[in-house]
Every structure is written in structure tokens, then in C-alpha cells.
């Protein structure tokens, strides 16, 4: 089985978000970038397929040279090789279109992406990629088993979960649950050394167009101070009469 794991390179979850150039650009100054958490769960599940079922695992990112440390980290965790499509990611459609080309040309059986990136929260790339390549698609995937060309997956639904049967080629939008938090791997020294020797191929983009344009950003209005109350009665009264929430 050939697995492709899509890796989005996102600000660490503790990042303070600021903008520059008249609120039209995300300010990357002082921001630490990491593998998108949803992709980290997917990558770890891919390592399980590699170790238990002999799958090969490639990782891919659409982005500039600044994303290479993130791809190297994925190699240090255990991926076999990395691909970087050398262009700025502009919207979900353009990214999906670039990824679809790699997925098709590489005849991948399984493409693992994340439910959403924690930066733009598009939640679009995996579904679009499935639509563009004609593969089956399971979103908010929290468990995945593959046997030959058939797959069983569990996905999170509102208020519960659902088990589905499907087949390869398959794209999933993965998240926590694919593996446990405690199974996530921190690259060790040996992994980091080996990652340096693994192939990282840079491909030129096919020039996919966009469907959306981010015109500008805005920060939420500052919040008023909390109202501290001393008694439960007072809280109920405020929630009922002032906030109209109960």
C-alpha cells in the first residue's frame, strides 16, 4: 500500500496571531511553526501501516522553502520521503488541485489529510482532493483499518460516531482518535539523523488557479471585564435577566 500524508505547516497552538501590511498578511514574526495537529495523528497512523502492513509513507506539502523543517520533522518521525510543491498556498482549491496531481501521478492508494488546518480552518482540502481524484472520502475519521483494497473507518458525527465500509483509493480527513495522544512520536536523535539523508523532492507547481481570495484580516474586538459574583443566586439571576441565557 502506498500512503501519502498531507502535511500542513501551521503556527504552534500557543501562537499570538497578528497581521501586517495593513491587516492583509499574517505576521510570521516570532511564530513557531509545527505539523498541523490533525496531520500528526494521521502521520502516526500511517507509521502503524508501515510497521504492521509494510506500507510506504510519503509526506507532501504545498508551500515555500520555509516549510522544509516541518517536512524534515515528518521524515524524522518515520516517513520514507517528502515532496514539497514549491508555491505559496493561496486557498483550499489551489492546494487540493496541486495535491491531486501528486496523488494521481504517484498512484497512491491512501491519502491521509487532516480534518482541518488550525490556521485557516478551511476544512476543504481533503474533500476537494477526493472530489478531484475520484477517490472515496471519509471525513472526521477517528479510526481506520485497511485489508487488501477494502477499508473500514469510523467517523465522528454530531453526537456520536458511525462506522463505514469503503475501498481504496481513499482520502481521509483525520483527527485525534486515529491514534491515541500517547502514541504520538517525538523525533529522537536517530530519527533526526536519518531524516537528513532521506529524499526531499521539490516539484514545481502545475499553476492551479484559486476560487477564493483572502482580502484582509481582523482581530476580534477586545472583551469586557468578567463580572465576578459571590453567590449562586446572583449568578442565576444574571444569567436569566441580563444574559437571557437560561
Amino acid at each position: 500500500m502506498k500512503i501519502l500524508v498531507c502535511i500542513s505547516h501551521v503556527p504552534d497552538t500557543t501562537s499570538k496571531i497578528n497581521f501586517t501590511e495593513g491587516d492583509t498578511k499574517f505576521d510570521t514574526n516570532g511564530v513557531q511553526f509545527v505539523i498541523n495537529p490533525n496531520d500528526e495523528f494521521g502521520l502516526t497512523r500511517a507509521m502503524w501501516f508501515k510497521e504492521k502492513q509494510g506500507a510506504s509513507v510519503d509526506v507532501v506539502n504545498v508551500g515555500g522553502p520555509e516549510t522544509e523543517p516541518t517536512l524534515r520533522k515528518a521524515l524524522a518521525i518515520g516517513a520514507d520521503s517528502a515532496i514539497r510543491i514549491n508555491t505559496t498556498a493561496l486557498d483550499g482549491y489551489q492546494v487540493a488541485k496541486e495535491l491531486a496531481k501528486v496523488a494521481k501521478e504517484g498512484s497512491y492508494d491512501l491519502v491521509i489529510a487532516g480534518r482541518e488546518s488550525i490556521d485557516y480552518n478551511g476544512g476543504m482540502v481533503p474533500g476537494m482532493l477526493a472530489g478531484l481524484t475520484g477517490a472515496n472520502f471519509v471525513n472526521t475519521c477517528i479510526s481506520l483499518e485497511v485489508e487488501g483494497t477494502t477499508a473500514t473507518a469510523t467517523r465522528e458525527i454530531d453526537g456520536g460516531k458511525e462506522t463505514v465500509n469503503t475501498s481504496l483509493p481513499l482520502v481521509i480527513g483525520g483527527q485525534k482518535g486515529l491514534v491515541e495522544e500517547s502514541d504520538l512520536r517525538i523525533p529522537n536523535m536517530r530519527g533526526i539523523m536519518m531524516a537528513r539523508k532521506k529524499p526531499l523532492t521539490v516539484l514545481e507547481p502545475s499553476g492551479a488557479t484559486t476560487e477564493t481570495v483572502t482580502a484582509s484580516f481582523e482581530k476580534p474586538a477586545p472583551k469586557g471585564a468578567v463580572k465576578l459574583v459571590d453567590s449562586v443566586d446572583q449568578l442565576i439571576n444574571l444569567l436569566h435577566n441580563e444574559a437571557k441565557a437560561i
Binding site: N121, G127, M128, E211
Partner: peptide, 23 residues
Amino acid sequence: QSANAKYLAPLLSVSLEAGYASN
């Protein structure tokens, strides 16, 4: 933006060649 709507919207976007804005 229910789980189901988020699931189908990108597929719909591809089939209608329609740009999609979430959230």
C-alpha cells in the same frame, strides 16, 4: 457547519466548480 455539511461541502464545491467559504 454541522459535521455532515462540512463533509459534503468540499465535494459539492468540486462538482459545481464553486468556491467555498467555511465558518
